[in-house]
């Protein structure tokens, strides 16, 4: 479904924040940027629910709240079930004539709450077809508890539970292809986005809200503390992830997959595809890979990135390289 929504930057900056300042996210927080951008794309009355995690904690430190929309948090593994209950309630109220207006539902969860502990509730809600947008803000580890590895942590990253040691160079496993898993649920809309491209984030949010049924938006949101880089580099790194094809941008509408402009240009002009090393070098979570001892790991990451990129190109009916 193509959206008819059009916006100018001025309209968007003038729209009051529904996720406000005064939240206690760290300086340079990528997920906070993601939430701000997404909440700028709402189209009307909206209810938000959050899984336990960084964004839940920093936005609602009692008695303060950074939310100008109705908001509920219940637990870690159940953001999609929260949304299911809200959706069911709204549906029942409408059927009984106790509610007239259309209300959108957005569920936010981090990578831990999505790739790992929340995947069962997410899969169930997707299968049942509730009308809601699920936003995965992915900072690639359990940052709220102190940088532990999750199913969304990339290969080679050093975290407190996948530390780079003398014999094991960080996380051994590759990042779970969570958005592909959601595509396999045959829900109407799945997309990836990066906070480096705010218009794209907003447009995909709006599309996710507009479709009937579940939509899944996977937003890459770098974390200065966990990825170990200077707080000013959040957007730069979020952009590099796209330019290296570590995190390509695409959307799948009713099963039709297409690359978003920022990744499509790389597909069309392969010389613009930057080596993963340029991305890895920006973050001290990968620092150990830059030693002679473990540098073959960089090749492995490049190979896996290429393999996944080529698979994506094939799915988008673009020539595999």
């Amino acid at each position: 479904m193509a959206t008819t929504w059009k916006f100018t930057a001025k309209e968007i900056v003038e729209k009051p924040d529904l996720f406000t300042s005064g939240h206690r996210a760290c300086a340079g927080c990528g997920p906070a940027i993601a939430l701000r951008q997404i909440m700028k794309a709402t189209r009307g009355p909206t209810i938000v629910t959050n899984a336990t995690g960084c964004m839940e904690v920093v936005s609602t430190i009692y008695p303060y709240t950074a939310w100008k929309v109705p908001w509920i948090h219940t637990a870690f593994e159940n953001a999609a079930a929260n949304a299911s209950g809200i959706a069911a309630a709204l549906k029942a109220m409408k059927r009984k004539g106790r509610l007239q207006e259309d209300i959108d539902i957005i569920a936010f969860a981090g990578d831990g709450g999505t790739f790992d502990i929340g995947i069962q509730a997410l899969s169930g809600a997707a299968e049942r077809g509730h009308d809601f947008l699920y936003v995965l803000y992915d900072n690639e580890a359990y940052m709220n508890t102190g940088i532990q590895r999750s199913g969304g942590t990339p290969h080679g990253a050093s975290t407190t539970t996948s530390p780079a040691g003398k014999v094991i160079p960080g996380k051994r496993q590759y990042k779970k292809a969570i958005a592909d898993i959601m595509v396999a649920h045959e829900i109407p809309y799945v997309a990836t986005a990066s906070i480096a491209y705010w218009q794209d984030v907003l447009m995909k949010t709006r599309k996710g809200l507009e479709v009937e049924g579940p939509a899944f938006l996977h937003v890459l949101a770098p974390c200065p503390r966990g990825w170990r880089y200077d707080t000013s580099k959040t957007i730069e790194i979020a952009q590099l992830a796209v330019e290296t094809c570590i995190f390509p941008l695409w959307e799948s509408t009713d099963g039709q997959c297409s690359l978003s402009p920022q990744s499509k240009i790389v597909a069309l002009k392969p010389e613009r595809k930057r080596p993963v090393k340029e991305y890895l070098e920006t973050q001290r979570r990968f620092r150990h890979l830059l030693t002679p001892e473990f540098e073959s790991e960089i090749d492995n990451i490049q190979k896996m990135t290429d393999k996944r990129w080529n698979k994506l190109l094939r799915r988008c009916n673009l020539v595999s390289l």
Partner: peptide, 25 residues
């Protein structure tokens, strides 16, 4: 005319009841 949700677990069943209840029903 109840909205009947067959969840994928009891955990989600009670969660859905909780948030539906919080929505006012």
């Amino acid at each position: 005319d109840t909205e009947f949700v067959c969840t994928e677990s009891e955990h989600s069943a009670l969660t859905a009841c909780l948030t539906a209840s919080a929505t006012g029903v």
